[in-house]
Design a protein around this nucleic acid. Structure first.
Lengths: 121, 121
DNA sequence: GGAACATTGACACGCATGTGTTAGGGTTGG
DNA sequence: CCAACCCTAACACATGCGTGTCAATGTTCC
């Protein structure tokens, strides 16, 4: 009963029907289905779609970026590995001698990848 | 003096010289330059390049993803906006009545976007 | 000074993303 | 029952990413 069908949802959110299906396939906004398989968008989802539009526009990012951000929140090991890699940019700790820097870095990276539990060869 | 030139760096890191230039342009690993403009890769950078390779491979992500993760750490407003959007997926707080859920969500989104300080129309 | 390397810039190609459109076939509602 | 909607699948096209390669030119070093 309640829930807009795809064309109406498109109308009120500014997306095209085509894009609503695409966004659904990307997993970002997945509407429920009617008995006969029609997509039904509830009010929260309409709001989410509008906000998503604004998000992408105002930060010039893509759906893939939002998807990746979601992966980061859901996969702590991914998050830890990426964060660790990025932090290797940080300033060298004062208590680490210059000659030890490399092995320090190497160890840190190894710890991170091990912590990330890579199963691959 | 110390620092490998691009071909040697490529050799020991598993990247191609082409990709090292590409990675530099993406801002992820930027070597210093010799007086005459040659790229010089230091030990930390070589290590970072190896680790980057491992990172991309073991999590099936791309350079763009790592770049986006970096943006997330550097742009708190982006981070807040994305996080906020993703959290709208979370379970509805028990103290918020169902009828208020939409306006709650809407307010939250507005607060987040305002906090994100979008200058755009 | 010449072989072996570096630089930037460009052409190119395959694959993924974002988006429209069309085709063939169900569903709904007056 | 028929117009107006929905569904999936597919063709199509622009753009961007990852990557190789080639051209024109400068640098290093024996």
């Amino acid at each position: 009963m309640d829930g807009l069908t795809i064309n109406d949802a498109a109308q009120t959110t500014g997306w095209s029907p085509r894009m609503l299906r695409y966004i659904e396939r990307s997993g970002l906004v997945v509407p429920r289905r009617s008995a006969s398989g029609y997509r039904l968008y509830g009010p929260e989802q309409l709001q989410r779609l509008r906000t998503l539009r604004e998000l992408l526009r105002s930060f010039q990012i893509g759906l893939g970026d939002v998807g990746f951000a979601r992966r980061l929140r859901r996969e702590p090991r991914l998050s830890a590995a990426v964060t660790g890699w990025l932090e290797a940019d940080a300033v060298r700790p004062a208590h680490v001698a210059a000659d030890d820097w490399l092995s320090f870095e190497q160890d840190k990276h190894e710890r991170l990848l091990v912590a990330a539990g890579r199963v691959n060869s």
